[in-house]
């Protein structure tokens, strides 16, 4: 059997893909910033002296890490408005699902990074009179983040790809637009191939940047 590939029908609809790409990038940036930031606070919560805060952070991690993101997005979109008097846009539902899930994973990465810093570093900082918060900000986190850049890069790439799940609530991103083009032109193989190529073309340079950052931070070795 020979299949006749027809990419022309995909590129005829390049504008639809461009709109989708804009939606994907918007979702990626918001989820990246929100997920990575929240993850840091959750990680600190898991190391807190306050028992309730530790418990809450651990619950957060286990809940969002061990449930499917797809279900989370669907749930935020359909179930939340039933339980609370709020309207949720597809964009909002996707942000919540992807960010909270990523925060749970990122929290564990941060926690591992912070724990990998030798106790002597904390002690040396405390011994010159730094507070716990100053020690974390000036001494521990800069070293920890350097060590976890590869793991955080993984997470970032994963967030970018998870954005396709937002199509389940009809948020306009690449996957959603791809489905649309495919249903009009009956060319799903070509469309999804092009979408995969777009992901690769965008993600690879970003990953290269993180390698450069890693090298730059390693200059003290």
């Amino acid at each position: 059997m020979t299949y006749h590939w027809n990419f022309a029908s995909v590129f005829d609809n390049w504008w639809a893909l461009a709109i989708g790409l804009a939606g994907t990038l918007k979702l990626f940036v918001v989820c990246l910033v929100f997920g990575m930031t929240l993850g840091l606070f959750v990680a600190l919560g898991r190391r807190s002296h306050r028992r309730w805060l530790r418990w809450l952070s651990t619950f957060f991690v286990e809940f969002f890490r061990n449930t499917p993101v797809l279900v989370q997005i669907l749930w935020f979109y359909y179930a939340l408005p039933i339980l609370a008097p709020i309207e949720i846009s597809p964009f909002m539902a996707a942000i919540l699902g992807i960010s909270l899930n990523s925060a749970a994973y990122a929290a564990e990465i941060y926690r591992g990074g912070i724990q990998s810093i030798e106790p002597g570093q904390w002690e040396a900082a405390r011994a010159i009179g730094m507070t716990g918060a100053q020690t974390l900000r000036r001494i521990v986190l800069p070293q920890a983040i350097r060590r976890i850049i590869p793991a955080l890069t993984n997470r970032g790439v994963e967030i970018f790809k998870m954005s396709t799940l937002a199509s389940v609530v009809a948020y306009v991103e690449l996957m959603q637009q791809g489905k649309l083009i495919a249903s009009l032109n009956f060319n799903p193989l070509e469309v999804y191939t092009v979408i995969a190529a777009i992901f690769l073309i965008i993600l690879y340079p970003i990953v290269r940047v993180t390698y450069a950052v890693e090298r730059r931070l390693a200059r003290s070795d």
């Binding site: 002597g120 040396a124 900082a125 010159i128 009179g129 931070l217």
Partner: peptide, 18 residues
């Protein structure tokens, strides 16, 4: 701790700073 300085067996310098 500001009035009592300490020097450690393992130095504990901050490796990410000059």
């Amino acid at each position: 701790r500001q009035r009592v300085g300490m020097v450690f067996q393992q130095f504990n310098l901050f490796p990410h700073m000059t």
